[in-house]
Design a protein around this nucleic acid. Structure first.
Length: 561
RNA sequence: UGGCCUAUGGUGUAAUUGGUAACACAGCUGAUUUUGGUUCAGUCGUUCAAGGUUCGAGUCCUUGUAGGCCAACCA
């Protein structure tokens, strides 16, 4: 990694500037602050890579903080899933934090604000409060409760905390400015009453702090130096700073909120509501369906942590709207898998080939290189016999010179094996080719060193020996949506763009070395793509997922003509 | 009919802070190749618009234009 060569993103410029202006490197601390209310997706991965990447770059700690202030939506199940996903991506957090650990401190500070006349209990309904908010162009109106006495506020707030009131009867509001051009500054709610058990604090509390009151103060408590969030929080910054102003002491570090544009991936959706709709409507099977943009889905699909990190690195971070093409993600998985995935042979759309001059009942075990990119990966033996499968697409009765595959009267090499020549073929009643009769050149065996073995023939096919082949269920995945921005159309629902062919299940015929493949194993089916063993797989019933196809310039050529 | 943010090739991100617009992906051409993979070489194409400041503007100023965000007891 040529760290020097990489240019800085705007966040790093801000940090460098801070370092120049008196921050010490030891002051730096970051955090990734998910709400445990759902599964992490590729967008979160970007944020994770940003924050943890900064930690690595500046040798600074990064906290994993759960923003768990709304028990109505949060569950421990998600906490565990999030921890697993972050770990899987390869990052180690410094401290595991929970906003709920700060409930008492937050409460004490709120009491302090009340005493200073900077917060008050409002006893109106949420509708009434909303109706007084005003609009972006008109100022809001003061609540009739805005000028309650400190004593009354203190008493009511304590009552709220002690469970004397029902949900919605009162809220605590910051007393700021009902005429502010920033709607968030118009006396934002700090606490609401919620008689609901929390996954960590259980029933200790029946009032819960709002995001704005919690987030900056949590950053301050943890002494996070740079609190990075997405652009839609930009208007919150003024409030973030106002809340911080109420509690900071000069001997402590004051956190900074800075905002970046969330990364959007083409041909996908990430909103929780939409993802849920995909699951519930049965378009996909689960949250970790290999077509889902969730981290667990990507993992199951066969994406590697390295590929996702590299992807996040190259797309970088900025402040403008963006839609990153999925092909860039594909590039990064291929780049990584090309280096590490053992090559094997599998036929997914079989056509029988009979070598008429090959002795019946004979078998040979041929040497096959495991990975041309990695000589240390060694080699294995693959069985060869008189009857083989090749792909149907690899044979045509006749074809032009551009077709580097098998055609009648033409020659082709069987990978790691012999040169064969197609002599004839047989068809069924409907005219489908069901078998090709070929002859092989016994002297052309790969690696034998003979003159014949060194002959150049245009075209090398993968194959499997029929008597030796094992079968597996192979799941061929394609993008879930046919449109680059499925949720970017005003007149159409994103569900209209669901790709009906996003999953195709076929039976594959594999070389026998795959018999002991373990869940998670990643291989390249030569000429077809990268595949991994799905968690549904058992020794009796192997299941492979296609992570991504190989680049296919032939398919492009074909499409053009 | 307010406030704020943003604008660089097909896509994403840079530009020594005012000094030759670069990197990756995608596309195209060719070479290599027992994977139509990989690798290698080459090629394509860009500063939203109009003014202004300046020896010099992607960068600063003005005015437009376009897109986005903001009125949850969500985060």
């Amino acid at each position: 990694m040529s760290e020097e060569a990489r240019s800085l993103n705007f966040i790093e410029h801000i940090i460098e500037e801070d370092l120049k202006n008196g921050y010490s490197q030891k002051d730096l601390r970051f955090r990734f602050p998910p709400e445990p209310n759902g599964y992490l997706h590729i967008g979160h991965a970007s944020s994770i890579c940003l924050n943890f990447g900064l930690g690595l770059r500046y040798n600074a700690p990064v906290n994993l903080r759960f923003d768990d202030t709304n028990p109505a939506k949060e569950e421990n199940e998600y906490v565990e899933a999030i921890k697993e996903d972050v770990s899987w991506l390869g990052f180690k957090w410094d401290t595991e934090c929970y906003a709920s650990d700060y409930f008492q401190q937050l409460y004490d500070w709120a009491v302090m604000l009340i005493k200073e006349g900077k917060a008050y209990v409002d006893s109106q309904s949420s509708e009434e409060i909303a109706s007084q908010k005003g609009t972006p162009t008109e100022p809001g109106k003061d609540s009739p409760y805005r000028n309650r006495s400190v004593e009354e506020n203190l008493r009511l707030f304590k009552g709220m905390k002690d469970g004397e009131f029902k949900d919605g009867e009162h809220v605590l509001r910051a007393k700021i400015d009902m005429a502010s051009s920033n709607m968030l500054m118009r006396d934002p709610v700090m606490y609401r009453i919620l008689h609901k058990a929390h996954h960590r604090t259980n029933t200790d509390w029946c009032i819960y702090p709002m995001y704005d009151w919690t987030h900056g103060e949590s950053d301050y408590i943890e002494q996070v130096s740079h609190s990075l969030c997405t652009l839609e929080f930009l208007p919150h910054r003024e409030l973030y700073d106002w809340f911080l102003d109420q509690v900071v002491s000069s001997d402590k570090l004051r956190p900074k909120q800075r905002e970046f544009a969330r990364r959007n991936l083409s041909h996908t959706v990430v909103s929780k509501r939409k993802l849920l709709q995909l699951v519930e409507s049965g378009v996909v099977e689960s949250w970790d369906d290999p077509r889902m943009p969730t981290i667990s889905g990507l993992r199951r699909r066969g994406f590697t942590p390295e590929s996702i990190r590299n992807f996040a690195d190259t797309i970088g971070i900025a402040k403008r709207e963006n839609v990153v093409d999925v092909s860039l993600l594909d590039f990064h998985v291929r780049e990584h898998l090309n280096k590490i995935a053992p090559r094997v042979m599998a036929v997914l759309n079989p056509l029988k080939v009979v070598l008429t001059n090959y002795e019946e009942g004979k078998e040979e075990w041929l040497d096959a290189e495991n990975n041309p990119e990695d000589p240390s990966a060694g080699s294995r033996k693959v069985p060869f016999s008189r009857e083989l499968y090749i792909e149907q697409e690899d044979f045509r009765e006749e074809a032009n010179r551009k077709f580097f595959r098998l055609k009648l009267g033409g020659e082709v090499r069987l990978k790691n094996g012999y040169i064969i020549k197609a002599e004839s073929c047989t068809k069924d009643d409907e005219g489908n080719i069901i078998e090709v009769q070929c002859t092989y050149d016994p002297k052309s065996k790969s690696g034998s060193g003979t003159e014949e073995s060194l002959r150049k023939v245009k075209g090398t096919l993968h194959w499997v020996s029929i008597p030796h082949a094992i079968t597996a269920e192979v799941r061929l995945y394609d993008r879930l949506f046919t449109d680059p921005t499925p949720d970017g159309h005003k007149d159409k629902d994103f569900m209209d763009f669901v790709n009906p062919n996003s999953l195709q299940k076929v039976t594959g015929y594999l070389e026998p070395s795959l018999k002991d493949a373990q869940i998670g194993d990643q291989v390249q089916f030569q000429r077809l793509g990268y595949f991994n063993v799905d968690k549904d797989s058992t020794p009796e019933n192997l299941v492979f997922n296609r992570t991504v196809t190989l680049r296919d310039t032939w398919a492009k050529l074909e499409q053009k003509s």
